[in-house]
Simulated scan of single mutants.
Amino acid sequence: MQQQSPAPDGFVYVSLTQLMQLEHRVRGLSFQGRQPLSSILSGNHASRLRGRGLNFDELRHYNPGDDLRHLDWRASMRYGKPFVRSYTEERDRPALILVDQRMSMFFGSQRSFKSSTAAELAALSAWMAFHAGDRVGGLVFNDSRIERISPIRSRSRVEALCAAVTRQNQALSASLPDAENEPQLDRVLQTCLAMAGHDHLICLISDFAGAGPRTLQLLRELSAHNDVIAMQVYDPLALNLPARGRVMVTQGELQVELEVERRQVHQPLGDFLTGRLKEVAALLRRSQVPVMMINTGEDPLEQLRRELGRLTGAGR
């Protein structure tokens, strides 16, 4: 008997139509360089993206106001006059969107599941890169599979990425085993290293379950020659566990009602959720990769807008 596909509602399961329609909501948003990124658990840490690379354009006479760092000393000494090198910004660059659809993401207590929030963020990131003139591709992964989409500058490639996200998102089920102890995240980063030589934009969207020392090393290697952004998706319970009452925790078709006012429930659950979130945030800080903290209780687009817009003064 063939298993029936889940009905996408946009919160537990997404649809391809939903992700494609997000194109019209990214107007005014950009991953361009000189935008500092910070997060609620990053302290005062703020990093700037390098932006696109520069191509040598021409060697010309120095004009007052030219950047002295672009002086070509060899040519200046040879001709007895100051010469500068001028550059043009690359018209496009490859953007790789890494999207986590593991079982650890199939959880939610407010608004959306982490897996669906990650899917929305992936589509928003892809459309932002596409409208910036970049080539779009990515890696979509679950606990056992990594789907690779090579970056191409085309609307159909964005659709291919969104289709891969939708397939893996709709394949999630509470009946599947949770394999978060497997080093799948590190495998994905290793695959990304093989794809991205230099000057790529890499957006990693995950809850970072199972992240460890090897994850840190791979992130550092990736960010040495590429612009890397980490979007850590988390559930609001991790930061604001209510002191009393009952909390319905949902994981797929499984629902567990917890009486959080009971000390033996509240303390261990709060320590686990908050501690795990802060451990991952600390690891990401050590990687020097800009971090966005995105919670499942709010619209992902509005959170992206806050991170990219309202925090523009954080690194000044």
Rank of each mutant, 00 (worst) to 15 (best):
R220P: 05
R220M: 09
R220K: 14
R220T: 07
R220C: 04
R220H: 09
E221W: 03
S223K: 09
A224G: 03
A224V: 02
D227L: 13
I229H: 08
I229S: 02
I229E: 06
A230G: 04
Q232C: 07
Y234M: 00
D235M: 00
D235P: 03
D235T: 01
A238F: 00
A238E: 15
L239D: 03
N240S: 15
N240V: 04
A243F: 01
R244W: 01
G245K: 06
V247Q: 06
V249T: 06
T250F: 04
T250H: 13
Q251W: 02
E253N: 12
L254Y: 06
L254K: 11
V256Q: 15
E259W: 01
E259K: 04
R262L: 15
R262E: 15
R263F: 01
R263L: 12
Q264S: 13
Q264R: 08
V265D: 06
V265P: 08
H266L: 08
Q267L: 13
Q267D: 14
Q267G: 00
P268L: 06
G270N: 14
G270S: 14
G270M: 09
D271T: 13
F272S: 07
L273E: 04
L273A: 04
T274H: 15
T274S: 12
G275W: 15
G275I: 13
G275H: 12
L277P: 05
K278Y: 05
V280K: 15
V280D: 03
V280Q: 14
V280G: 03
A281R: 08
A281I: 05
A282N: 10
L283S: 10
R286A: 12
R286P: 01
S287F: 05
S287G: 09
S287T: 06
V289I: 04
V289R: 06
V291L: 13
M292R: 00
M292H: 02
M293F: 00
I294D: 02
T296C: 08
G297S: 13
G297D: 12
G297V: 01
E298S: 10
D299E: 10
D299N: 12
P300W: 09
P300D: 08
